[in-house]
Simulated scan of single mutants.
Amino acid sequence: MSLHNMRTIHGSKPNYSDEKRVGFAIRYSTPVVKQFGKYSKAILVQGNDSYNNFELVELPLERRMENNIVEYTKLH
């Protein structure tokens, strides 16, 4: 596992194994932030969003990550 600032250039060597390489990104921002391009989905962590810059999705209720991934992929 590695943690990076979003402005850090980073990479890794090619994956020659039969195992999948997984990337996972978490970004925290305030509701006032507006992204350009594709309309993004977000989970509101605290407070309320009066800016409507994101499509808000519900916080997953399942404890098993596999079930949450299945539900998340249905949204896309």
Rank of each mutant, 00 (worst) to 15 (best):
R63S: 14
G47N: 00
H76G: 15
S29T: 07
N5V: 07
S12P: 03
L61P: 06
T30Y: 13
K20G: 06
Q35R: 04
T8V: 04
E58A: 09
V32M: 05
R21N: 08
E71S: 07
A42V: 00
M1A: 08
E62F: 12
S17H: 04
K13R: 12
E55I: 05
S17C: 03
N5L: 07
E58K: 09
E55G: 09
S17G: 02
N67P: 00
G37P: 01
M65E: 15
G23M: 10
Q35L: 13
D49V: 00
K41P: 04
H4E: 06
K41Q: 12
L59N: 14
Y28S: 07
K34I: 05
S17N: 03
I69S: 02
K74A: 08
V70M: 09
G37L: 03
R64H: 14
I69Y: 08
Q35P: 14
N68Q: 08
Y51N: 04
S29I: 03
Y16H: 08
Y72T: 12
A42C: 01
V22E: 10
T73N: 14
G47Q: 01
L61N: 13
K34R: 12
G47V: 01
T30E: 11
L3H: 09
S12T: 14
E71N: 10
I69G: 03
N48A: 03
E66G: 03
K74P: 07
E66S: 09
R21V: 08
E55C: 07
Q35M: 08
N68A: 06
P31S: 01
N15Y: 02
V22M: 07
K74D: 06
H10R: 06
R64N: 08
Y16D: 05
H76K: 13
E58T: 09
N68S: 08
K13T: 12
D18R: 11
D49W: 00
F54D: 00
I43E: 03
G11E: 04
R27I: 12
V45K: 05
E19W: 14
P31C: 02
F36W: 15
R7D: 15
D18N: 11
T30L: 11
Y16P: 00
E71P: 01
L56K: 01
N68F: 03
Y72R: 12
Y51F: 10
Y51G: 03
R64Y: 12
T73I: 15
R63A: 11
L61S: 15
M1D: 06
L3Q: 12
Y51C: 07
Y39A: 11
A25G: 05
L61M: 14
